[in-house]
Design a protein around this nucleic acid. Structure first.
Lengths: 215, 215, 215, 215
DNA sequence: TATGAATGAGAATTCATTCAT
DNA sequence: TATGAATGAATTCTCATTCAT
């Protein structure tokens, strides 16, 4: 075991390769979807032999599910942090949406994986997808509940509204991405989405989230 | 699938076999998704031999795409008709949503096929999916534009709002279906969805779509 | 179903192919043993495509186990019938051994399959092998028990003796088959084996099983 | 595997690693059979890296064959010594059988390896197996020949009888081992096997090998 | 028209073996 | 000597598709 203490560099190399393979896997899965993506596609993209794949991962499905969960965690955490960084509903929505759109712009594979890639593909994914949606909905629901208890918005079925938010934002983001130059339109989109959400919650406080627009 | 009876393509009675295979295909595709559904599954369900499948359809993918389009047409037409049956925004939204929810309740396969089944599965579907979303968005956009020109709602980016509607309704419907007894909750859901949409469009007319609820 | 009543010829053809594939499988399994025999070997031998194999059989292991059981049944039945065709121990042994040796000579694959081919190979075979040995031992044990009750041989542990018979005959047969011209030596071998078995059971009746040897 | 300590090959203490791998290999091969046993299984069991395996052994098959031969040598030598330690047929058989049964009881892996493990599995083993059986048969044949020349048993085909002995003892031992508590029954089994063998050789001298049993 | 036996490309996975460190 | 990451040939099995009847 301790014959050569090269274990440090080896470890790092191994981790690097592992990471590079996962990156390749995300690329391929995002591009082709779970079924159409073959293990051969992945290893070709990662420039390793097929056996190497199975040295690092037990099988294709496990890797996919793992990637899905990791990606979901990443997205949810980002949105959640953004939302929690503010205390008033307008800014909570704005920041949350901003976080979502940013990820969509700079890591489009995240959206591909979570919203498109493996939707009806892997049986064992159905559960994870449900969990992902549930957590996403919860993230949007919390600020709504708070706003109600603070009297900022009237009582309403926040669960349903949060669901609607989640679906609405997905569709807006997907459409944004399908544009030729998404980043240019992004800021406008974020504001419109936030205003949409605010109105939908019957928010009647300070109407704009941008102080400049004082009208 | 009762909704196929309304299709022009199936008026020829002689190919009841073709119809039965398409019905079976919808069932199987909806249940298992595109990839997991095998041609054998379909013909077994339709009680015909596998050769018969290839007499009527060129291949699995073509059939799926065809089914997807037909299903999309069916759904879009139903929503469109419902929307167009009214002239005021509140009722347009209400009716449209109602139509959507009804179809989801009584032909859940439609939702499976369009929203879940083959999303990231079939390459040649990407285009059709885009078209489907586009048309769906257009359906929701039109009444918004009308309402603006009538001064019922303030000017706004109706395209973005319509996208949000489409996504929001999908998510609400999907969540509704995942409940144990969707039909019981359906009416409430429809109203909440309509109110959500109305508020989101900054509608400020008669606040309720149901006269009884005068509060 | 009844469109073409060619079902008769088709059925027969199918059965014929099925049989020919099983024959090929026996050949290959007997020659190479379970693991070394690949499905490709079998279909090559049977002159069909690899898919055809899986059209007829669920998988390699199931086929092998089935073949093993069928072969075991065949051998056991043959020996059992031969033994039961006589009533005195000498002839029972003689006939039983004769049957065994005959099968070994004319269907050597039977011996390969049962004694060599898949001994330590397939987990699910362990049970079948144990059953096969058990039944074989029982076949040899019965005439011994009868002989004891008739006073033809002294009381003894017939179970152990029957085990010894089974093992002894196997080894004799295996050695016979490894000779250049087994059939020439076969008759002598059978007699020697029978005499061996008779002596081993302490049989003291008419010493020869062949009436001609009256001395 | 204690019996390898007696091997000349392992006298060099420096390669305890080699020995530990061989021991592990015997364990694993005996437990799973040649094909199911992977090199990884072996090195895991021996607590070394997989590369180490290939430093000591050219490949899996060579090791197996080597192990088989060594194990065969060990068993044959033990039986041979036991047989040669006596001069009269009854005790020669008794001692030989005793030696065999003892090894089976205390080193069951020996029996697994030689009789079960890789019988039809390794092509290059066929020859070694034949040699092993040949030597085993010879061991049993020699005392028979001696007994004939001493007039203790009538002339007979000692080759065939020796084959039968070998097969019979194998089967008896295998059955003994498959019992829940083999060691309890072992002594009885040995005596019955010896008497079986004596009778089968038409031995008519002092009937019991145990003077006490004077009946 | 209808059948279903037959095909074979292609997918996932295993595992003996090599080799840079 | 020892390690274990990396390799890729080989295997089993699936399934869309074809075609003789």
């Amino acid at each position: 075991m301790s014959y050569y203490n090269s274990s440090e560099r080896t470890r790092q190399k191994k981790d690097a390769k592992r990471t590079s393979m996962m990156t390749a896997a995300v690329r391929v899965f995002a591009e082709k979807g779970y079924h159409a993506a073959t293990v051969r596609d992945i290893v070709r993209d990662a420039n390793v032999a097929i056996g190497t794949f199975y040295f690092y991962f037990p099988d294709k499905e496990t890797l996919f599910v793992h990637l899905y969960e990791e990606t979901a965690d990443f997205l949810l955490q980002a949105i959640d942090q953004a939302v929690n960084s503010r205390v008033d509903l307008p800014h909570q929505l704005l920041k949350g949406i901003q976080a979502y759109v940013n990820i969509a712009l700079y890591e489009p594979a995240v959206i591909q994986l979570l919203l498109v890639g493996g939707v009806g593909a892997v049986p064992s994914l159905t559960v994870r997808r449900a969990e992902f949606r549930e957590r996403l909905i919860t993230i949007w629901q919390r600020p709504l509940n708070t706003a109600i208890s603070q009297g900022k918005i009237p009582p309403q079925n926040t669960r349903r509204v949060a669901e609607a938010y989640a679906g609405a934002f997905d569709e807006n983001v997907l459409n944004l991405l399908s544009h030729p130059e998404p980043d240019i339109e992004a800021e406008t989109a974020v504001q419109e989405m936030a205003l949409f959400a605010l109105r939908a919650a019957a928010y009647s406080g300070p109407s704009s989230v941008y102080p400049a627009k004082t009208s």
